[in-house]
Amino acid sequence: MNLNYWSWDTFFDALPVILQGLGITIGLTFASYLFALIFGFLWTFLRRIPNRFVHFIVTWTMEFIRSTPPLVQLFFIYYALPVIPYIGISLHPFACAVLGLGIHFSTYIGEIYRSGIENVDKGQWEASTALNISTWDKWRKIILPQAIPPTIPMLGNYFIIMFKEVPLASTIGVAGIMLLARSYGAENWSYLEPLTIVGIIFLVLSYPSAVLIKKLENRFNKRFHKNQIMKDKGAMQ
């Protein structure tokens, strides 16, 4: 093995090995993203509980999860959960990663939902009350359909951000592209090519998605801008 310079032989030798982990990496991204999307709702609704004590606890729990390293949180779930007395659940590394990354990013997703809900015009709430619409229908038919669409580009950004955090799961043994690249490197004592492959894969997958989301964002902005103009016109008449 050449230690001092680039080898295309090694590159093409490592490529198929590493690509075997791509399914796991992408699967983990989708699974933990889905988890975060669902868990995010939980935070949003917990924060709406009109009790100052509950509000304080929920806010600071979110702050705690959000501002401490996801890597440490993964280790907690992987190493510590199984040995906590009476709870003691030991999960497959993949499930640990879904739980860890999912919870970590649910705090961000929850904030996005909140901003979306707060941006719904106050008149919409008042109109729903005036029309005597039930709480359930108010949320389902009036508020959420207006709150969610503007947040879609931001939610999309978090999908890409999570995709790039997924290789953290290699540290607890999830056999995605990162773990396969590192073990290939260890076996062949050549890390350069496998790690470069991982970088390229991330670049190839995340860059176009980012461009796509940017386009989506522009389209949404235009649409909402247009609505705003129409609103202004309405106000003038």
Partner: peptide
């Protein structure tokens, strides 16, 4: 775009393992 498009952990390992190999 290069650094935003790949993850920190990849960059860290790349610098750690690959730079000494590639550039000596």
């Amino acid at each position: 775009e290069l650094f935003r498009g790949t993850s920190l952990i990849v960059q860290l390992f790349w610098l750690y393992y690959a730079v000494p190999m590639l550039f000596g």
